[in-house]
């Protein structure tokens, strides 16, 4: 189909006074309501800006299925560090299996979890190989633990992390607003 030069448009160049009069109401209430695009676009732009500013990277910390985090008020912002997750059944380091919760409960004593220790040491050595020996290792690890896990498992993971070169342990929690 050939492309034609645009012709003159109705209502813009051809006035059609009777149509304008009808639409405008002709002294009565108009039949067509106008939509103010300016305010609508303003609203959309403000919404986009607000959503972009409130977009948080802290949601990127993947919480394994089956982990229900406890809630706390007096918290600190999250940091980027290796994540050790403890579900009701197993221990994971950044998603990789690193121990069994059942065997710790069965043993009924505080212990160093060897698989976890090996994986954490590997991560520490990898960090040092990347950053160089001159830069001190931060030694920070984040524990993502299900709220019903017994203290024996928590203490065992805590002690293992400390012995693997991660003395600064942080417990991941769901932030609560401050009560008045």
């Amino acid at each position: 189909m050939p492309v034609h030069k645009p012709e003159r448009r109705l209502l813009h160049f051809i006035s059609l006074a009777f149509v304008k009069k009808k639409v405008a109401g002709g002294g009565q209430r108009p039949v067509v309501a106008g939509l103010s695009l300016t305010s609508m676009i303003d609203f959309l732009v403000v919404t986009v800006v607000f959503l972009l500013m409130s977009f948080s990277a802290s949601g990127e910390f993947g919480i394994p299925k089956g982990v229900q985090l406890p809630k706390a008020e007096n918290v600190m912002d999250m940091i980027d560090a290796p994540v050790v997750a403890v579900t009701g059944r197993q221990i994971l380091v950044d998603g990789a299996p690193a121990g069994n919760v059942g065997s710790i409960i069965e043993a009924d004593r505080l212990q160093v979890i060897e698989e976890l220790k090996v994986l954490l040491k590997q991560r520490r050595e990898y960090w040092i190989s990347l950053k160089g020996k001159d830069k001190p290792h931060p030694g920070v690890v984040v524990l993502t633990i299900d709220q019903n896990v017994p203290a024996l498992v928590v203490k065992s993971v805590f002690q293992t992390a400390a012995q693997s070169g991660y003395p600064n342990v942080s417990f991941m929690v769901d932030s609560l607003p401050h009560a008045k």
């Binding site: 959309l44 409130s54 919480i63 342990v169």
Partner: peptide
């Protein structure tokens, strides 16, 4: 603008993760 708003609303994280610090000494 509408597509951007939809995308941001769908991908928004409504739970805020935080941490409690401890020291293994």
């Amino acid at each position: 603008l509408l597509v951007t708003i939809s995308f941001l609303l769908i991908t928004a994280v409504w739970t805020h993760m935080a941490r409690l610090n401890a020291d293994a000494q």
